[in-house]
Write a protein that binds this DNA or RNA. Structure first.
Ligand SMILES: [Mn+2]
Ligand SMILES: [Mn+2]
Ligand SMILES: [Zn+2]
Ligand SMILES: [Zn+2]
Lengths: 121, 121
DNA sequence: AACATAAATGAGAATGATTATCAATATCAC
DNA sequence: GTGATATTGATAATCATTCTCATTTATGTT
């Protein structure tokens, strides 16, 4: 882990929720940590490629990142406060592979996310 | 259906696969149909709000639209040729509502898409 | 038809996230 | 240390999407 990775991934850890590159950049700057926007993007992309962070997209297309280094899973996200729960989804995994087989598709991946309002919101 | 809707939704129907606003605009222009980009976006957004088209996002964040006026369903998309199959997903619907209940979330929606390579590709 | 009024259209500008450049700086090998 | 190499960050460029607004087109009334 180089310097930038410590900074950016650290900020992501502190946030705990899905955050945008832009907001992480602002956050780091506010805390005095000098950083460039390009570095934030570079670090997040690398972390995504290494499956250290998960990525999803807001309705407007902006990418959101979250520290998720605990293997493949899916999320239930509160659209109001950002609270995020990691959920197991073996039923979905099974369904996906069946559908893939039935239609003769190979190398099938899936995008599965749940959005709603948490108890507090 | 006004003039623009006929043009844009018609182009979408001819395409049959998920297409971007930009590519639909180019397509209409190539076929001599005069159209503005703003109108294409407006028409697609309205159609999405009316559940006449489904929307998903490429990895780079660009929105893709597909004529899908047959009620709620999910897709299996070939990432190479764009071939798209509509798949039933009652197992996923059930799973989603169970997960929502277990975590005390309300008004939960889901994003579920499958991507892979079709038989031909 | 002629007219008033409202809706639709499209060219072009503005926005904003993401990506590309590239010179400055830090890190490493010897 | 010296030179090679990787990292950094300010800035510019890209590009999908949204906004503006003058012009055109549809709609309704007399
Ligand atoms: Mn899964
Ligand atoms: Mn569903
Ligand atoms: Zn909440
Ligand atoms: Zn294919």
């Amino acid at each position: 882990m180089n310097k930038s990775e410590v900074k950016v991934i650290g900020a992501l850890k502190r946030e705990g929720k899905f955050s945008s590159a832009q907001s992480l950049y602002q956050l780091l700057r506010k805390n005095g940590e000098s950083t460039g926007l390009a570095t934030v993007y570079r670090t997040l992309q690398k972390a995504a490629a290494e499956n250290i962070v998960d990525v999803l997209r807001k309705d407007d297309g902006e990418a959101l990142y979250r520290l998720c280094d605990t293997g493949h899973h899916h999320h239930l996200v509160c659209t109001n406060c950002g609270k995020t729960v990691e959920v197991e989804a073996s039923a979905v995994e099974k369904w996906a592979s069946t559908v893939a087989k039935n239609n003769g598709f190979k190398k099938v991946t899936h995008v599965v996310e749940l959005f709603g309002l948490c108890q507090k919101c």
